[in-house]
Each structure stands twice: as structure tokens, then as C-alpha cells.
Write a protein that binds this DNA or RNA. Structure first.
Lengths: 159, 159
DNA sequence: GGCGGATTGTTATGTTGTATCATCGCCGGC
DNA sequence: GCCGGCGATGATACAACATAACAATCCGCC
């Protein structure tokens, strides 16, 4: 596998991004004996169409093109499955969903979200993660889920 | 002023919490020449009724008791004002609002949210904050807003 | 008096997410 | 063969969260 930590703000072969993500998803679901059904795979592909978080109803619009029967529960079930399998993340501050670039690798999710271009970059920063754990520990708090979303300007849009 | 960093999970004189918060809010708004109108003050008091994040429509229900004309925009306008003045925070992962224990003090907001008792504790951790800034800087990202919400179990509910 | 800005009133609508029950397809046991 | 269970999907309705747009009011100030 090539380095998956690409700079999402730069031009890149996005078809390859999508293909890699889908291939990884298929492999992971196969390993885990869970079903990456056509609907789920299609939803995953839609989420991966860009590096911008996408809303559930936007997914629904796109899914409807190929799947007339699609309704909100159709989409939310697929999104829930993909989240549970670690294939996508929910961006809480946007109520939107983003493909996970680290699927299958233990990691915590931290996001840099540009308010100009809309791109969200997933970063993995062990020091930051340790700082989160340390802060929780100091407060005698048991961590189950961490939401870290930094909004602002990406280098491209600021520069 | 006494130490405001109380442990919200322990029994405490919550009336004093509310009184302190309202007094600080009045003082800050006075300093800044902005109006803490009766509606805004009432909404602030409702949010401060507990240390659990409260939804906008829950605020609306309570506000309606004393203010029949209240409608969603009434509440959202008051919440927007209070957020702009740094008197409350929005908890993105819950779509809910929480009184700010650090009103008037420069700080970043980090929250520990217990899924059992529902309490959210605001913590201020400079190391964590530095780690966030460092991570963003490494990615050449200009920070405008930070959302840090840790969900799990508070010491009381875990122990 | 009346202008202008801030606040609130009022109605309607947009956006995001769930509950509930029915149906379908598959697979394993009998 | 068939039937029982289970995971996935279909289908309808609704709940929860949030904003748009315009009218009315209040109040200080010229």
C-alpha cells in the first residue's frame, strides 16, 4: 500500500482515492464477516466523491438516482453501518459525513475543516491524542469517544 | 470571586452557580454595552438550571411558561446572542447548549460529557490547547474555532 | 415629530434524524 | 421440502433541530 496520508487540499488522483477506499472497505468487511451490500457500497462511494463532508440528504439525492426506493432510513442505516465499521466519520459540527482515510487502522479522528473550500482533512496526531487522554484522566473521566474538529482556513485558502 | 472550577459532578450549591453566572453576565454585558434583555437573561437562567446541555426546544418549553409569545426564533436569537457574548457554548455532538463557566475569561472550550448522568464539564487545559494549535500549524491550517468534546463516563458514574 | 437601529413578534418552511411495522431473501435444522 | 430465524431493506409517518422573511415595537437622538 502506498502512503495514504495525501494532502487532500492539493490536486490528486481522486479516482484512486475512491478505488482504494472501496477496495479497503470490501476487504475489511470480508474479514469481519459483515456485508458491504450494494446500497452500503454505493453510499460509501458517494461519501467518497470528494474530501468535503456530505450531508445525509445530499447522499439521499445521489443515491436516489440509481436507487429509486431510497428514503431517509435507507441512507441513515447505511451511514450507521459505515460508521460502526469505521469506514466513515460523522463531522458533528456540520452534521455531515466524511470518508475515513484510516479505515482498518486503530486511530482517533481529528479534523481540520476549511470554511472556504469546505474540505475536511483527517489528521492523526498521537501527541494531541495523548493530551486528550491526559486531560480526561486528570478529571477522572473514562473516554469512550473523542470529537475534535478544528474549523478555519486551510493553507491553500489562507495563502 | 471564589474558585469557579467546581466539580459539577458533585453535590454543590447550584443556586450559587446560577446566581454567579447571571451576575457575571449582567456585568459583562454592561461593560460591553450590549443588552442582556429579560428574554436573554431568562434563557441564560434556563440553560444554567443544570450542568447538562439543554436542547433549544427544551429551552423553548420552559421559556413558554413565563413568556407565551416565545417561538423557535425567540429562543435561537437569544442563544445566538449568548454564544456571541461567550456566555454559553453549543455542544455540537448533542445539538444542545451549556452555560459557560469561564465567561469573560479568554479560554478555549473542551468538554467531558457523561453518557450516563448527562453532565458536561467544561475543562481548560492549556497543554491540550497547545497540542491542538501545534497539530493545526503542522498542517498549515489557520484555526478559527475548536470543537473538543469527549464523551464517556464521569468518575461518579464509572466508579 | 420622526428617523434609525436593536429587539421582538409572527408565520411559514427548511434540514436533520428516528420510530415502527411490513417485506424479502437466505440459510440451517428438522 | 419447509419453516423458523435473522439480517437487510421497503414504506409511512413523525420527531427534533434550525432558519427565512417580513411586520411591529421600543427607544434614544436629532
Amino acid at each position: 500500500m502506498t502512503d495514504r496520508h495525501i494532502d487532500v487540499h492539493k490536486a490528486h488522483d481522486h479516482e484512486a482515492c475512491i478505488d482504494t477506499a472501496l477496495a479497503r472497505a470490501r476487504a475489511l468487511c470480508d474479514d469481519r464477516d459483515v456485508q458491504l451490500t450494494p446500497i452500503r457500497e454505493k453510499v460509501l462511494a458517494i461519501v467518497w466523491k470528494s474530501h468535503k463532508p456530505v450531508g445525509a440528504y445530499q447522499v439521499l439525492d445521489e443515491l436516489s438516482r440509481s436507487h429509486k426506493a431510497a428514503r431517509p432510513p435507507t441512507v441513515y442505516r447505511a451511514l450507521d453501518f459505515l460508521i460502526a465499521e469505521g469506514l466513515i466519520h460523522k463531522i458533528e459540527s456540520l452534521n455531515a459525513y466524511l470518508g475515513c482515510g484510516e479505515a482498518g487502522v486503530a486511530h482517533t479522528s481529528q479534523f481540520l475543516i476549511c470554511r472556504v473550500c469546505g474540505t475536511a482533512e483527517e489528521i492523526v496526531d498521537p501527541k494531541l491524542d495523548q493530551a486528550l487522554d491526559a486531560a480526561a484522566k486528570r478529571a477522572r473521566f473514562t473516554v469512550e469517544r473523542k470529537v475534535v474538529e478544528i474549523a478555519g482556513l486551510c493553507g491553500r485558502c489562507a495563502g
